[in-house]
Design a protein around this nucleic acid. Structure first.
Length: 567
RNA sequence: CGGGGUAUAGCUCAGCCUGGUAGAGCGUUGCGUUUGGGACGCAAAAGUCGGGGGUUCGAAUCCCUCUACCCCGACCA
């Protein structure tokens, strides 16, 4: 590509509210233009990168035996009623009406559409297993879109759906997809981890997330330094402490703690370490209020809490009025001692191992000290309720957990029978009996990968693309082109030769001064840069510099070819 | 959904508190100089100050309202 014939749209300034590196750099490099909140135009430059990612994904999906297709982005309400997700999916579902008042949504995912397709197309177990995929624009009406395409509302996604007669077949395809995902992120040159994950709104059994490691990531992942265990913190199990609960040694005592509501305030005021305190929160589930207790230095894990049998369905934090009515106190002073009998008290494993602890006094401005389970406070049940923290033992018994941040770029699920059953998608088995199919689903955030790659690969001059994602592999910069055609001719010849070898080359023939030209090439992150100048030509060399280098090196044409084309 | 903020030239922003007829940098156009790390000079084009309403002799500026965008929170007591 001759740059004079392209639309390169780099800019010097970027809005003050572009916070993360990838967002700023994508705007500066002119890959993106914002159209509305969470909705972006991909410029010609941005699209080249997006296509690179798509290509790798497509090749690996095909290699793994998945079959590409394309489903509509607009989906009828009726289909979503069949799985009850028209209501359950929540505010992220963008709903639309046509001129006849028929209702639709813009697809945030395609389980319903593919299952509908499958129930019409697949009739026999002999057609199974089969795995369909598409690469397509999706829309989720995020509460707070941010960080550019990292958390956009409209985004590009690859989604695949497999169909099976048996759990063994599903597990086999799941394994194949898991392997394909690893290859995709390896090929793209990303540092990532596959972690055990919660299945969330989509539902199902086994599930892994593929997380690109980055400080700016919105997800927290727990990994063990003694094994290959890794899990989303939502899922990571917090083991019970190895020590037995000590015998009570202190008297239960009510103490005044005026206006000390938070754990920090209480522990400072009473000079007691937070790990000798119990904090209690009240949540309202479908069956009434439930008290959840964790140690003062721990936090409740909402995903784990939602799985408690005492809290079926949706639950929310109790409001002040409810708390006052049930306990006679306000938030900040709730404790397990003397709670009404009808409120179940679910205690985290670590909190349950405490003796002589501090907890809320169930009266405004008071706490208890010297409280003990059983003697002073009921335990309905002990459960794993808290988020794991750095330094916890690994759930597999090997090593210690650490917390890292990641950007979720892929997610694989074994969905099981849920959707096929709800939508009556069956095939006949060997005995001629109709059986609901089992499903797997496998997503990759194609546009998010572009942002994630930049988070991992940039410096103060701009983007440093992993080669497979770069918009071009080689940039040729011409210096002194106004003074004559010698350098221009040499650059053109070099361009022709490299292009002839199948390289994607960008020839900067804009005739700019060197400063702006180099700055642009570095900003947009082209891996290899060659400078063609009169000076070099006289010496019989070209000037070469890799994007990661800080020094130029003078190479002969042969040396240059060897470097770029391999031996 | 709650709270806060912003909206002024193509872009990034100042001006608003204290009302008096519109500014800067970058970019763009023309001419000249310059040509190895975001050059310089001269000249120029470019804004219904987000929309609507009000107060006032006079509104970018004060008030009301609508819209869009951004930030924080919305389960840690």
């Amino acid at each position: 590509m001759r740059l004079s014939q392209f639309h390169l749209a780099t800019v010097k300034e970027v809005p003050a509210d572009a916070e993360v590196a990838s967002h700023r750099l994508m705007l500066r490099a002119g890959m993106l233009r914002k159209l509305a909140a969470g909705i972006y135009t991909w410029t010609p430059l941005g699209l080249r990168v997006l296509r690179k990612v798509e290509t790798v994904v497509r090749e690996e999906m095909n290699r793994a035996g998945a079959i590409e297709m394309l489903m509509p982005s607009i989906q009828p309400r009726e289909l979503w009623e069949e799985t009850q997700r028209w209501e359950k999916f929540g505010g992220q579902l963008l709903k639309l009406k046509d001129r006849r008042e028929q209702e639709y949504c813009y697809g945030p995912t395609h389980e319903e559409v593919i299952t509908d397709f499958a129930r019409q197309e697949l009739k026999s177990y002999k057609q199974l297993p089969i795995n369909f995929y598409q690469i397509q624009t999706k829309f989720r009406d995020e509460i707070r879109p941010r960080f550019g395409v990292m958390r956009a509302r409209e985004f590009m996604m690859k989604d695949a759906y497999s169909f099976h007669l048996t759990p063994e077949s599903l597990a086999a395809t799941y394994g194949v997809m898991y392997g394909a995902y690893g290859r995709i992120f390896d090929r793209l040159g990303l540092r990532f981890r596959a972690v055990q994950a919660d299945t969330g709104a989509i539902g199902g059994n086994a599930s892994h997330e593929f997380q690109v490691l980055a400080e700016s990531g919105e997800d927290a992942i727990a990994w063990s330094d003694g094994s290959d265990y890794a899990a989303n913190v939502e899922l990571a199990e917090a083991l019970a402490p190895r020590v037995e609960r000590p015998e009570p040694a202190a008297e239960l005592q009510r103490v005044d703690t005026p206006a000390r509501k938070t754990m920090d305030e209480v522990s400072t005021f009473l000079s007691v370490s937070p790990d000798q305190c119990v904090k209690t929160i009240l949540v309202r589930g479908e069956q009434g209020l439930v008290a959840l207790c964790v140690r003062g230095d721990h936090e409740i894990n909402e995903v784990k809490a939602a799985k408690l049998e005492e809290l079926p369905g949706a639950s929310v934090l109790a409001d002040e009025a409810e708390i006052l009515k049930a306990t006679g106190t306000r938030p900040g002073f709730i404790g397990p001692v003397g709670l009404p009998d009808e409120i179940p008290v679910i205690v985290d494993r670590s909190a349950a191992a405490l003796a002589d602890f501090v907890c809320g006094g169930n009266a405004v401005d008071t706490h208890y000290t010297g409280a003990n389970w059983n003697r002073d406070a009921r335990i309905t049940r002990i459960a794993d309720l808290r988020k794991v923290v750095d330094g916890d033992p690994s759930p597999d018994g090997e090593g210690t957990l650490h917390i890292a941040r990641g950007i979720e770029v892929g997610h694989v699920f074994q969905l099981g029978g849920r959707y096929a059953e709800a939508m009556n998608a069956t095939v006949l088995d060997e005995n001629g009996k109709a059986r609901a199919m089992l499903m797997g689903c496998y997503g990759i955030g194609v546009s998010r990968i572009v942002a994630a790659a930049i988070e991992q690969n940039h410096d103060d001059r701009g983007i440093v693309w992993p080669e497979p994602m770069a918009p071009w592999t080689v940039a040729i910069c011409v210096i002194g082109s106004r003074n004559g055609t010698q350098a221009q001719d040499a650059a053109q010849a070099l361009y022709d030769e490299l292009t002839g070898h199948g390289l994607e080359v960008l020839l900067d023939d804009r005739g700019l001064r060197p400063g702006p030209m180099f700055a642009d090439m570095e900003l947009i992150g082209i891996p290899h840069r060659i400078v063609v100048s009169e000076r070099g030509l006289e010496a019989g060399t070209f000037e070469y510099r890799h994007r990661r280098d800080t020094e130029n090196r003078a190479l002969t044409r042969a040396e240059l070819m060897e470097r770029l084309l391999g031996a």
